[in-house]
């Protein structure tokens, strides 16, 4: 294919007029370095000529409007090339919705940088997740904002998994919403949460609080259960050897698989 070069641009000064397709010069104009521009041009080459190609430009515009700098924008698009296919009006709606959910400047940039996929999710889906978090899990508006900021991936998590994880931590571990938010619970998979909790529970180091919220022992904070890497968790919280936890994880995986299969059989009957 014909490669436009800086040379072309000099010969054709009129190309500064309305641009609808990404070209190397336009990328450089936007502030990307030559090499960034080349990489991005390369990345969008597949789109060229298709109906979505015209969104590429609005995508960049939308990201720049958020106040992100060229190198962040490039990283974001590298992480999530699907963003090239999002239309201008979709961007406006989605970003508007996030602002309405309390993700104001700073948080908004952070969320988009960390989890650009959030801009590929329809407003309706996000609204449903938020509704679920508020009405089924009884998180407050502010807590939902914090959840979205710290664990934006919840918007795409399987609803069943999300509900199970919440109920597990709420009922089995006896943990209230505020602590869930503080410990960034939704960043961890159900398996991780369940495995560490069960391990502590079987060792006698964690108890489900009774109706009055009381336990015979002092439970470790959810944060200290989830946050540490495995070695630190084992030495500081579980007081166990790596061998023990490694075998335990394998046993649990088998146990859960068999539970699911059993459940499947019952439902099939």
């Amino acid at each position: 294919p014909l490669q436009p070069t800086l040379h072309d641009r000099e010969l054709n000064p009129l190309s500064r007029q309305p641009v609808t397709e990404l070209s190397l010069p336009s990328l450089v104009d936007m502030g990307f370095t030559d090499s960034q521009a080349e990489q991005m041009y390369e990345a969008t080459s597949k789109l060229r000529g298709t109906s979505t190609s015209k969104h590429a430009l609005s995508t960049l515009t939308a990201l720049f409007v958020l106040g992100l700098n060229p190198s962040s924008v490039q990283k974001i698009l590298e992480k999530c090339p699907e963003l090239y296919t999002v239309t201008e009006s979709q961007f406006q709606q989605r970003i508007g919705n996030m602002r309405k959910l309390g993700l104001v400047e700073g948080s908004l940039q952070r969320v988009v940088s960390h989890y650009p996929q959030i801009l590929t999710v329809p407003v309706k889906t996000v609204k449903n997740v938020v509704l679920f978090l508020k009405e089924k899990c009884l998180f407050t508006f502010q807590q939902v904002t914090d959840l979205l900021r710290d664990s934006p991936a919840v918007v795409l998590e399987d609803r069943g998994q999300l509900e199970y994880k919440f109920q597990y931590v709420y009922f089995r571990m006896g943990i209230k919403q505020a602590e869930m938010v503080k410990s960034r619970l939704f960043r961890y998979t159900l398996e991780e949460v369940r495995c560490r909790h069960c391990f502590l529970e079987r060792r006698g180091l964690y108890q489900t609080p009774d109706k009055k919220g009381q336990t015979m022992i002092i439970n470790p904070k959810l944060d200290s259960i989830l946050h540490f890497d495995q070695d630190t968790f084992l030495t500081n919280v579980a007081n166990a050897s790596a061998e023990e936890y490694e075998v335990f994880q394998r046993l649990m995986a088998r146990e859960w698989l068999e539970e699911e299969q059993l459940q499947g059989n019952i439902e099939a009957d």
Binding site: F199, R203, G204, A240, F248, L251, R254
Partner: peptide
Amino acid sequence: PSVRAALLSE
């Protein structure tokens, strides 16, 4: 604690 976890596991 270690014996307890073993007793409660398979």
